[in-house]
Design a protein around this nucleic acid. Structure first.
Lengths: 201, 201
DNA sequence: GATATATTAGTACAACGTACTAATATTGTA
DNA sequence: TACAATATTAGTACGTTGTACTAATATATC
């Protein structure tokens, strides 16, 4: 394993354990038994390390999405996708709690408006498909609202989870928040779709 | 105005402008034209300053709640309360983005589980009242889910707002997120209640 | 096998949070 | 008013942080 990748992995671990602002670059280099200068060579700024971690996270998220789009649409498969995304976010939870530092990275490195647009476009396609196959119906609650809700939910659940339920482990959190999501979907599911919600309720 | 209060106010301003982790105690003391040692006298740790700011925030929030409970229950009045809470959170937005540092303060200084319980108890009372006066009905969507939703929404909206819509000002954000909330309430509002939602849609 | 490049260690520096001491203001009491 | 006790202030010092820099070593390329 290359030093660069070992740095990233160690950083993720420490961020999850202690939080970002309580993890120094010297902590990371000490655990890896390399010099601070070495780490500084691979990531001259701490923000560069953050960017690399975010890239890795996004890549894994994208894989999950393409995996979903490779198969037939269906509420059960979509919920599995979301659960996958939640697990992925949990694996990087330490980074998302560093919102403050994250923001300055996002502001400079990423065109966040574009990312947001892309995410919403995906959601619209998915919801349209689920409507088409007869799992969802948007009569009482509008599609636009559900898109807003899902974007909000996927962005923020991990922060609320770490603040409100810091004692819970991964599986408990996934169960709780998937249950929350499933209850929202109750309001827009057909009888056929509600069968897929059952396992999360 | 006492030095202690001036420090708090300046800190809030700088946190909102630059973010917490880009605001040093020396920045604050320089703006106030006092020595770092003076600031260190009032708040020996930066976390103490954070705690003081959070106390002030909570106090203003509590006032808003008691103001609501002093009057008759009603969906319109409740939405005004929420809008008030959102505006208050916006005023302290810089602090909430410092989630990482915030968490270590919350973990030590506050019994956050208790705060959470209290908030949910308030929400339950409010929703019961609104059901009683005939503004809400929980047929399609359960009351427990709405409580989860509101707790989630109130905790996290400001973070999503600062990430996704950093260019928007206070009134635009309030309008957007109150609209979001109102659309969720559509699913649980009676015809009578829907009249109160109109101004936020 | 020589040269160029990539990687590493070691160190230095400014800025940070914070602790400490000495000086000055303010307050309470006779 | 005068004096003691306390509260507040300024100034400074210390260890840690992110980061930049140089010199040394490993690896790759021809």
């Amino acid at each position: 394993m290359k030093t660069r990748d070992r740095i990233i992995q160690t950083a993720i671990d420490l961020f999850n354990e202690r939080g970002m602002y309580k993890t120094s670059v010297r902590d990371i280099s000490q655990i890896l038994a390399i010099s601070p200068g070495n780490l500084s060579y691979h990531f001259s700024r701490k923000e560069d390390l953050l960017t690399a971690i975010l890239d890795q996270y996004r890549q894994q998220n994208d894989q999950a999405y393409t995996g979903y789009f490779d198969g037939p649409p269906g509420l059960a498969r979509y919920l599995d996708l979301v659960a996958h995304l939640l697990r992925n976010a949990y694996a990087y939870r330490g980074v998302f709690l560093g919102l403050d530092e994250l923001r300055s990275v996002l502001g400079t490195e990423y065109d966040y408006g574009a990312v947001e647009q892309k995410r919403r476009a995906f959601l619209e396609i998915i919801l349209n498909d689920l409507e088409m196959v007869g799992d969802l119906q948007f009569v009482q609650v509008g599609k636009d609202f559900i898109i807003d809700f899902l974007a909000f939910f996927q962005r923020c659940w991990i922060m609320e989870a770490m603040i409100s339920y810091p004692h819970l482990g991964e599986s408990d959190l996934i169960h709780r928040y998937m249950g929350f999501l499933a209850r929202q979907f109750m309001s827009i599911s057909t009888e056929q779709g509600q069968a897929d919600l059952a396992i999360w309720l």
